[in-house]
Amino acid sequence: MAGRRLTRWVVAVPMAGLALATIYPLVFTTNVAMKTRREYILDRFSLSDSLRWDNIAAAWTNVGMSRYFLNSAVVVTCSVALLLLFGSMAGFALARLRFRGSSVLFLGILAALFIPFQVIMVPLARIMADAGLVDTYPGLVLAYVAQFLPFTVFLMTSYYSTVPAEIVDAARIDGNTVYGVYWRIMLPLGAPALVSVGVLNALFCWNDVLISLLMMPSADHRTLMVGVTSLRGQYSDDIPVFASGVLIAAVPVLVVYLFLQRRIADGVTAGATKG
């Protein structure tokens, strides 16, 4: 018994080390962001002597992080709203309505799930350019919706499949139209799944860089992550400001993670556990 307990600690110590290695990079970056440039050059490891917000403020105003932040916020909000609306509409129809071609459509949407963005990005860019949507907010929103819609439809379909058919029938007998059932019954009932899928989609869109690079070439329209990549060139000699920019982009995600960790994990494993 004592042997077993010893083994557990032998394992736990390196695991604690790994946990430290998981946290440290962000702690290091935060600490750097609090230092003056001089402090950083003299000693980059020591704990900053004070909480200094100058660098954060500089990154926020001088470098245009505030502009990028706003761009990201707007695009992510619109994208997630549309994803949830279209995803739940399609999920409800596929899970709870009977019509010809239902399985073909489901399989078609499923197939789209397996197409990586890198494979279609060249022709997509041309389609968007032909439609005059490159470098516009609606264009980027549409690109995000297209990218994450198959995943959203898939999860909403599997969630609505667990809603008892009796509920839908009862609502129909009460005189609701199909649209009424969707709007008054299925949308509210889908809330738990909508929150999980919504948070995941918000993370995907917020964290994306490739789609945004492709769709929003002009500097004014940069999203936050593209903004971070451009910081490196502009501030290669002022690392504390660079670190501050990175922090600004990471903080919203950290907050979401702290409060919704379980939801995120549930969303990630939703597919893996259903088998």
């Binding site: 399985s103 799930l113 599997s158 994306d208 990630v268």
Partner: peptide, 28 residues
């Protein structure tokens, strides 16, 4: 979650072949 936290890796995570069949059956 992820090109962001890796969207593509999560996107594909939910798509294992087997549970597709399960969902397809359950959604009827």
């Amino acid at each position: 979650m992820p090109s962001g936290g890796s969207p593509s890796s999560v996107r594909t995570m939910v798509a294992e072949r087997d549970e597709v069949a399960v969902v397809a059956a359950a959604r009827r």
